[in-house]
Design a protein around this nucleic acid. Sequence first.
DNA 1: GTGAAAGCGCTAACAC
DNA 2: GTGTTAGCGCTTTCAC
Lengths: 337, 337
Amino acid sequence: MSATIRDVCRATGFSTATVSRVLNGSPLVTEKTRKRVHAALEKLGYQPNHAARALKMNRTGMIAVVFPDLDNGFFTQILRGIDEAASEFSVHLLTAFTHGPLDEHELITRMVRERRADALILMNLTLKDDFLQQLKQWELPIVLIDRPVKAGGLPFVGIDNRSGATAMTQHLINQGHRRIAFVSGPDRTFDARERLFAFRKTMRKNGLVMDPELIWRGDFTEDSGVRVMERYLREHQSLPDAIFAGNDAMAAGIHAVLRSAGVRVPEDVALAGFDDTDLARHLNLTTIHVPMKLIGHAAAQHALDLMENRDSVHPQSVPTRLVVRTSCGAHRMSARR
Amino acid sequence: MSATIRDVCRATGFSTATVSRVLNGSPLVTEKTRKRVHAALEKLGYQPNHAARALKMNRTGMIAVVFPDLDNGFFTQILRGIDEAASEFSVHLLTAFTHGPLDEHELITRMVRERRADALILMNLTLKDDFLQQLKQWELPIVLIDRPVKAGGLPFVGIDNRSGATAMTQHLINQGHRRIAFVSGPDRTFDARERLFAFRKTMRKNGLVMDPELIWRGDFTEDSGVRVMERYLREHQSLPDAIFAGNDAMAAGIHAVLRSAGVRVPEDVALAGFDDTDLARHLNLTTIHVPMKLIGHAAAQHALDLMENRDSVHPQSVPTRLVVRTSCGAHRMSARR
DNA sequence: GTGAAAGCGCTAACAC
DNA sequence: GTGTTAGCGCTTTCAC
């Protein structure tokens, strides 16, 4: 059994009140007392019982982080970013994966009701909007990652999909590409819609007509990249100038198909991705870097601010960055990373 | 504020004891009372305050999971495995990354002393053995992942490096390769030593002489794979028959060097890895699959058993599996995954 | 500046 | 079966 505050009292002869004051850095104690108490704390290896403290202060020093159980490679980095910011304030992380959409609602509700955490960070890829609205009722700071709630009101941290997709589209155009295909993600995802929107807008802005044949619908998986590319090759004679895949995974699938079809990248067709995963580095894929760790950091900062009732001024939208590699035919004008 | 047990009392007219009995499924309550209490629980959305319960029962329903802050791609999967097993028992996860070796000791000590968790799962890549010995003093279940403590006594879950490396070595030999290079990881890591050991032993068993020139020292990073391969090419005229890299990352580095040197895989040299990361799939690399999720699952099971004072019979060593792709010249005798 | 005592929300004797 | 009550380890009035 760990030492309790009473053990410290016995060791020093002071009351629990005084020891507690020392623990919490109250100025109302003599230097001499403080010294003696500290010595005892040290000797006993005392640390305040977390449950007791949480019960009394109605504050757990925890942020709950809930992720969908997708095999999302970004997860680690986001969590690391959250941890980095939280640990600075000695706030710990309660992480949970939702196992199926049914249990997601239940899991979150329970955690809040049980007061296991002082704030909630949710990766809302799969959460329903009406449920999120309901969360707002609770007097608990909630920060969303990745997707804003339509009806608004809940703070969120995401990436600037539009500026990223715009930068890439413009880059491709600047490289001299005109007939550019865009591989979209599933329509129901926010990222997919935003990226497509920016692509369209940038094309229009540059006076380029959009060929509907060149908007391919994938689902952000590598397999879907394979599928759309195979289908296009089957049904068409000529290639577009460039293919802008909505994410790196699909770009990888496309890359594989092109290679086995004997199509060279970037000589025969330029290829671009989005996300800057490890994969992109290995394929030498020009892509948009998404600073996942920063997102986590920003989300945690936001949550911490809300916990302290500070007004939060942390960014809602984390900037992306164009990473030029060799897959678009650009002269190596940028470092590999 | 969430509802408390007292709110439920007021709503039903029963005492806290009775409500508590219902909450904990005690048989000492009438069916009728149970019904009425349940109705009130439902209506109020009551969930027992976690801190109060933890304080009273001296049990948090939490497992603390501590990982070093390495960019370890396996992390997510291991954590997911842990979560899967733990959530089955409604046990939650307190995850923490250690920020530098200094704070590692402190972080773990504090968490234990504060009684934030009922058990501890540590990824002991960087932990010192004497610190781990010290942990044993505490009356808290601890499970290590990845590396056993030399002095023994602490339960751990890891992979069977030896059988994995043996299987791969034998596979290469069966393919007809005789001069096989092995790229080792850093000597201080357990995995590196084990894999090298099994490689040596299997070579010997097959009556093959080991050329010391063909034991290359990497450090498990992709860059180190690049380095050792470049150096070998610089200093030697001929290639070995096969290269068995101690992990996929180094294999990827080697692959890149070979490609730019115009050396074909597997025609000119066979290449094998270890871990079965996404990378391996993309390089069509023959490798050893390491079931990370299973490791997490086993570790959590172990911890849960210890928490319940059950004798744990869960495996210490999770089996690996040879994944044959095209990089070793084998006829495609196995599915891609 | 320090101590006594109440109470956070819950569980578990112990009474009845 | 149900209620009363003590107490888990801490913080925080309120006295002195």
